[in-house]
């Protein structure tokens, strides 16, 4: 195939659409992370997010976070209509910086936990959860 100007234009537009859509979907989640971290570097070690690999019912997906030394943990569902899930702030009487709860997921997606440590550093963990039936009604 010869690369005519028209071909290049069509391919470029296709690539833009293919790349652009998923980026837009998670833009709100990225904003939420940068708002929480203030743009600081985020380490990949230091926080554990335990979640099932496959969740049959997106209405109640059990998750567990464990972030030793954290003062706050933000949980985001990257593929939900609104990415925010919860923020845990641990007080002086918290025995461990861990907690578990149940969340709603609209579909198969990544769930991200970002922890703010007492020394001001940040750590992040993510887990991909496959959802059979989405949990956002409709």
């Amino acid at each position: 195939m010869t690369m005519t100007r028209r071909n290049v234009m069509v391919m470029g537009a296709g690539a833009f659409v293919a790349l652009g859509l998923p980026m837009q979907a998670s833009a709100a989640a990225e904003d939420a992370i940068s708002e929480f971290t203030g743009g600081a570097d985020v380490a990949s070690e230091g926080v554990t997010l335990t979640a099932p690999e496959i969740a049959e019912n997106g209405n109640t997906v059990p998750i567990e976070i464990d972030a030793p030394g954290a003062e706050a943990v933000l949980i985001l569902a990257m593929g939900n209509p609104t990415p925010g899930v919860a923020q845990f702030n641990f007080g002086p009487l918290a025995a461990s910086q861990s907690a578990s709860t149940r969340i709603r997921l609209a579909g198969t997606q990544d769930v991200v936990a970002v922890a703010r440590m007492k020394d001001g550093s940040f750590a992040q963990a993510s887990s991909n959860i496959k959802v059979t039936i989405g949990g956002c009604g409709g």
């Binding site: 209405n59 109640t60 997906v61 569902a77 939900n80 609104t82 925010g84 899930v85 919860a86 923020q87 845990f88 702030n89 641990f90 007080g91 002086p92 009487l93 918290a94 025995a95 461990s96 861990s98 907690a99 578990s100 709860t101 149940r102 969340i103 709603r104 997921l105 949990g135």
Partner: peptide, 24 residues
């Protein structure tokens, strides 16, 4: 009067919110 945990919740928390955590 001393805080153990303070959770901010969004609509993505399931019906009948459940929490499990540890305290001293």
């Amino acid at each position: 009067g001393e805080m153990v945990v303070d959770v901010t919740m969004e609509p993505a928390i399931s019906t009948n919110p459940y929490f499990e955590f540890e305290a001293v």
